[in-house]
Computed example of a mutant assay.
Amino acid sequence: MDLPLHPLIVHLAVVLVPLATILLGLAVFIPRLRDQIGALAAVLALLGIGAFVLAHRSGTELAGLVGVPHEHMRWADPALAVTIVFGSLTAIWYILWLLLRRPSRRSQSGLRTATTTLGLLALASGIAACVFTVLLGHSGGEAVWSNVPTAPSLWRSL
């Protein structure tokens, strides 16, 4: 149907990163939920990396066709970088959590401390990824919709 991939794939990134961050926050702060949603948070965070990479590549290609939205592209690289950090830390946190669950490792306070610290760092990077996602998305929306007349201006023209 000749639609560019970029506007379609960005919505996947916009959903995956905040959802993974929320789930990770719940898993980090509510221990009884870790088994149920820890893996889901890690998988969604990793899928968020994939969605951001695809959005970044497709956006670069689209910019070559329609022009470069400079403000939008200014946020693209930092958003991609922080999303990669978020997804990686979340996956490593979940792997450490799985190791900590083993009965032979439960008494290792160093592993417990590392898991807690990494969970908090992953959550902080997830919050940062959400902030960058909002800034990136807002600038992209402005690039697309800034020349479209608003409803009041449409009524005035009638």
Rank of each mutant, 00 (worst) to 15 (best):
P149M: 13
I30C: 03
V17I: 15
A122M: 08
P152N: 11
V82E: 00
W155M: 14
S157Q: 15
G25Q: 08
V14Q: 06
G48H: 09
D2C: 09
Y94W: 14
G67K: 11
F52K: 14
L135G: 02
T150F: 05
A51Q: 02
Q108A: 12
L135C: 01
H138V: 10
L19T: 14
H72Q: 08
F29A: 12
S125H: 07
A124V: 04
V15D: 06
L120C: 11
P18F: 12
E71F: 10
A55T: 03
S104Q: 15
A122I: 03
P69G: 10
Q36F: 11
L54W: 05
A39D: 05
V82R: 07
L12R: 00
L136Q: 11
H72S: 06
L19D: 01
P4D: 08
R102D: 01
A55D: 02
G59Q: 02
H138Y: 10
R102F: 04
W97C: 06
L99E: 12
T113I: 15
L33Y: 06
Q36L: 15
W75Q: 13
V17A: 14
A143I: 08
L121A: 13
W145F: 12
L24S: 01
P69A: 15
L8I: 15
L23S: 00
A51F: 04
A151C: 03
I127T: 06
R32V: 13
I30R: 13
T21H: 06
L8R: 06
A124N: 00
V144S: 02
V53C: 07
S153E: 15
L99C: 12
A39E: 08
T21G: 08
G64M: 09
A63Q: 03
A27E: 00
I84A: 11
L80A: 00
G119D: 02
F86Q: 06
E71V: 14
